[in-house]
Amino acid sequence: MSLHVPTRPSWACAGCGHAWPCSDSRQQLTIEYADARVSLSIYLATNMVEAMTDLPAGHGGDLRWRFLGWL
C-alpha cells in the first residue's frame, strides 16, 4: 500500500504533502497500471472531477494538467 494517496479536500499527498498526484504517486501508478493505461486514465479523470468539486473555482486547466497531462 502506498503512502502517496490524496487527502481531501486539499488534494495534497498524504505521504509527502505535495499536490497529488505527486511524482512518487505518478511513478507508482504508472507501474501499477502498466498494462491498463485506459483504466489509469479513467481513475485519474474520476479523481480530477472530484477535485474540481473540492478545490476553488478557476483551477480547471491546472487540474487537467495535474491529473491527466503527465500521462
Rank of each mutant, 00 (worst) to 15 (best):
I42A: 06
A36M: 08
L55M: 13
A51M: 04
A34T: 05
R26G: 04
M48C: 14
R37P: 07
L71P: 01
A12D: 14
M1S: 09
S2V: 00
P9S: 10
G15N: 05
R66H: 06
S39P: 00
M48H: 10
Y43E: 02
T7W: 08
S10W: 03
W65G: 07
A45L: 12
G17T: 06
N47H: 15
E50S: 10
M52L: 13
L71N: 07
T7V: 06
Q27T: 04
C16V: 03
G17I: 04
R64H: 12
F67R: 06
H4F: 06
D54L: 11
R64K: 15
P21M: 00
P21S: 01
V49T: 10
Q27H: 14
H59K: 14
A19V: 08
A57L: 10
W20R: 04
M1W: 10
P56L: 08
A14F: 02
P56I: 12
L40Y: 00
G17L: 02
C13H: 04
A36W: 02
R8M: 13
L29D: 12
R26T: 01
D54P: 11
A34C: 11
W11K: 04
W20V: 01
S25P: 02
G58T: 11
A12Q: 15
S2G: 01
G15M: 05
G15F: 02
H4V: 01
L44C: 12
L71F: 12
R64I: 02
R26H: 08
I31E: 12
D35Q: 07
A36E: 01
V38K: 01
W65M: 09
D62I: 10
E32Q: 12
H18K: 15
S39G: 04
P56G: 11
G69W: 08
T53I: 11
E50K: 15
A34S: 09
E50Q: 09
A36Y: 03
E32P: 00
S41E: 05
M1L: 08
W11C: 05
F67V: 01
I31N: 15
Q27S: 09
C16T: 02
H4I: 00
G15C: 04
R26Q: 11
A51I: 02
T46C: 13
Q28R: 09
Y43V: 11
D62K: 13
L68G: 09
P9I: 14
G17V: 03
S23V: 15
H59D: 08
D24C: 04
G17A: 05
D24M: 09
H18S: 05
S2Q: 00
C13R: 02
W65Y: 07
A45H: 11
G60E: 14
R64T: 07
S25M: 01
H4A: 02
L3C: 08
C22V: 05
N47M: 14
I31S: 11
L40F: 00
G60W: 09
S25Q: 02
G61L: 14
G69L: 08
P9W: 10
W65K: 13
W11P: 02
G58V: 01
C16P: 03
